[in-house]
Design a protein around this nucleic acid. Structure first.
Lengths: 127, 127, 127, 127
DNA sequence: GTGGTCTAGACCACG
DNA sequence: GTGGTCTAGACCACC
């Protein structure tokens, strides 16, 4: 799988990496249960420091997206830990995004169409 | 209009302020053409540094959400400057959000319903 | 007796195993003098490495919870070796726990009640 | 306030620091609302790296024990964030501790007395 | 082999 | 001046 990082972005690298991995799951590039590269390997592959990868993996583990086993490294989790206030956060982010889109001149039906396309593109699959 | 800031958040205050203002437009709390409080006033009202408000206003102006008139201060812009890569950015953010939602166990139709509700809640109005 | 291990935990497996065995004694699942499975057997039963079980047994032996007889394998010790600084360690851990509980909003009497319940649940018995 | 760290312990320094701060609150050395030393200051004071302090503060923030404000650094939080499974975790730790104490030869009433003493020693106070 | 921790030193974003 | 991030390089605990 390909990890795209923008070194000039104000978004920290470990967050970008975290996002890329989550999106990798959504795109089907990473399958549930699949092994993730080791911390060292990933760091080398994308040319960043080991600790930065470590931090990203730590967050993903905390969020329930991956499981880290001392013996076998990290793999994509099968079951998601429930988060209490996820829906709230999602609605807030959506509202911001949709307001921006509306003000940029997008029609409500346009926006909805884009949402539908994106959702249908999400393709979570088993290893 | 009420500005909600979380001093404990990792999101910079000037970004939070920028977001709150954009969402204020979406909610109809701020109408197109409406006058915004002066930098000094806003800073005092919400208890933050003038520099911070200034930075938020600067971004909003750059993004085309407000116009700054030397004589009358800032007001919500009527016309939105088109941004080339907005759609791309929106799709990326949406994809991340929808993947997260899917993995949290939300059904595609659930997500779409939430999108629809949020979009319909957006209510941009003239002063 | 059932051993619960969390491969995802930050607590090392050999410590988890050690703790589970000690708690097994406290619950009465393991009786004083009772035979423990061999290292090989235990490792196979719970699906971990023999080295790991060996390490746990070694600690338990060092702490005086089990006795290892070359002929008969390991069994739960009848007499406990006194440890000088145990009380100190216990008080430290208790203090941390009680402070956490207080800050989480638990009343002192609540906490004491929980302590009493837990203590009364401890039921060490002979084989 | 005095921070005691054991550099030879297997418990990570950032966890030890986190524990010491929580206990500092329990002992009344740190009052609710009180300012904590800056990351740099604390690191220098106790002779460890800035990032290690940062990690400890990050955990304390996440757990709700402190608030970190970009403007004023860290201070002891007034309100504790509720944790779902705290009671469960506390009971488990208590059970282990009490079993150990029982096996070390402590009487149930002895243990209860120690608990009572420790609880009564907890003294959370306002700045 | 794996992840986890720690350090020294640097730079940046924020307010 | 504050916390936050990142790096290079080292060492450790675990399995």
């Amino acid at each position: 799988m390909i990890i795209k990082l923008d070194m000039n972005s104000s978004i920290p690298i470990y967050i970008q990496l975290r996002n890329q991995i989550v999106m990798g799951i959504g795109k089907g590039d990473l399958k549930l249960g699949e092994q993730l590269p080791t911390v060292r390997q990933m760091a080398e592959d994308i040319g960043i420091n080991q600790m930065t990868v470590n931090k990203a993996y730590g967050i993903l583990k905390f969020e329930g997206y991956i499981e880290i086993d001392r013996r076998h490294g990290a793999k994509i989790a099968l079951i998601q830990k429930k988060t209490d206030n996820f829906k709230e956060k999602m609605e807030e982010e959506l509202q911001l995004l949709m307001t921006e889109a509306s003000l940029k001149g997008y029609d409500k039906s346009d926006i909805l169409r884009i949402c539908r396309t994106v959702i249908n593109g999400v393709n979570i699959s088993l290893a």
